[in-house]
Nucleic acid binder design. Sequence first.
DNA 1: TTGTACGCGTTATCAA
DNA 2: TTGATAACGCGTACAA
Lengths: 322, 322
Amino acid sequence: MTNIKEIARRAGVSPSTASRALSGKGYVSEEKKRKVLAAAEEFDYAPNLNALSLKTGTTRRLGLVAPEFAESVSLFTGGFVRAAEEAGYTVTLFITGYDKSKELEALEALRRKQVDALVFVLFQSELPLIAPYVKYGPIVSWQRLVHERIPSVFMDQYDGYMLALEHLYAKGYRRICNVYGASTRLNTQSRIEAFADFCRKYGLDPGVCPSFQNMGDTEDGERLVHWWLENGRIPDAFATTNDRVAAGMVSEARRLGLRIPEDFAVCGFDNLDFAHMLDLTTIHYPVDEQAGNAFAIIRSQIEETDLPLKPLKFHLVERATT
Amino acid sequence: MTNIKEIARRAGVSPSTASRALSGKGYVSEEKKRKVLAAAEEFDYAPNLNALSLKTGTTRRLGLVAPEFAESVSLFTGGFVRAAEEAGYTVTLFITGYDKSKELEALEALRRKQVDALVFVLFQSELPLIAPYVKYGPIVSWQRLVHERIPSVFMDQYDGYMLALEHLYAKGYRRICNVYGASTRLNTQSRIEAFADFCRKYGLDPGVCPSFQNMGDTEDGERLVHWWLENGRIPDAFATTNDRVAAGMVSEARRLGLRIPEDFAVCGFDNLDFAHMLDLTTIHYPVDEQAGNAFAIIRSQIEETDLPLKPLKFHLVERATT
DNA sequence: TTGTACGCGTTATCAA
DNA sequence: TTGATAACGCGTACAA
């Protein structure tokens, strides 16, 4: 509505004096300062942020790119936005629906200076397509990846998965079935390594149960229960991709009258909201703090400082399914 | 990086010709157009959105204000962002943590033209404080409220709650206990009315069970089970605030060895993610489409058109707890 | 069909 | 201590 010129006119000073009075930078006599502030108050003045952005070339706005908005993504988003707001940044959301062209739109927003930086929850596009955009501003990834210019705040799931396996071993389970996620993911590789090391450590036969890959949904978990019934009931415990799969197993088992953990044990991963309600043993990891670290990295790059990152740790949440 | 002036110089034309060539508006000879586009390509030109925003006074950016990101709020957010992106708008997030001053920051963002409009998931502040800001841009609410200038996309829970009650009645339950949410909410009032009408319709005594108010957490649900055990096991069914309370009841009952629905029935509300996993009977309502309507209202106001709103309906999701 | 000049709102620079 | 001027990047009215 009213701009600084108007305020200056009303206060009987020049725009630059008004600017100084309002920003508190530079010399202004007490009297004029008073007048300017009074005029600003009276005529409901508020600086136009777009003008500021144009002038400074910076927006104090960050973009967050996610394929969808559910579960741990909203946790991450919440953590990121809170960290950002605390430092006076604002966050704009880009939901891609796993569509590469939408990812490109977010990258273009960076290029066109709508945001100062981007966090990717997940990449759909190939890295070589993304990488050139770092010249327009910092890009950080939650998804685990290795790239010179694109830092990632992932946690190596080797440790977390080992925690699950050790727990199952301590509880007496010896025929553990691994239910892995997408086979292309580095996380899956880490888990496979963890299992190999685990078997070596305790002298277990890794081939006693088959493993599954590319599992991720509740429905996958439900199917696993039927597989278990129809294939000799071999595994006595399942270490699963995530809580969704675990939840599918637990609820389907319940429907079929099976008993957990007597018939078989289930250990989830993520510690989502519903894990508590299902009394699901699971592995918790600090999504919030990963988000905080993502912001810290971005801020360090933007403000050319060097903010410390929080160390991150998995921990076991023991409930009723093991 | 490179601006339109630079491109014009490289292409040997004036900035305005370059602008016309790039935007496709106005007359430009084919040859110069080609040259300009080639130069733009070569020198990696991308229009600066801040300059555009300054010039047009509009950002094509909307603000979404929520106290936190969990459950149905993330559903709503997802729906809203998708609708907005489809129409070429972008969404900036404001998380208040139930802090009024944070709400004010979002309102100030509107005033300072960082966003063109705001959606509030929930108001913490008093309405008279919010209302004046509509002069800076459209404000829409998800929360139910009545205000001349601030439309709301709420659904009257009378219908939804009646659906739950009718279902419980049809299943043979006659001693229904109402577990309400915050007593100040209009939704609670609607539910109370629904229950009164329901009792009248079937000639039931509304006082056969006590009602509860201000219930909303899982823990509240857990406590209710203990109340039921210690107070004569009177109600044969619970109609609850939301799925959280219902989930608390169901899982606590399970832990205590009670049987649902034999000992008592439970009907939730919201149909959240975990309702499926707990096999919870509940009332579903289309959060997504409410979000779509919120966006439609905003867009109608901004673009001065008149977009149609989708009609919204509750429906019962019958599962194993009734 | 093209180019010049101006304004969007702000602040930094510099001269007074 | 103050004010005129320029500049951020763009679009566009208007003149040529």
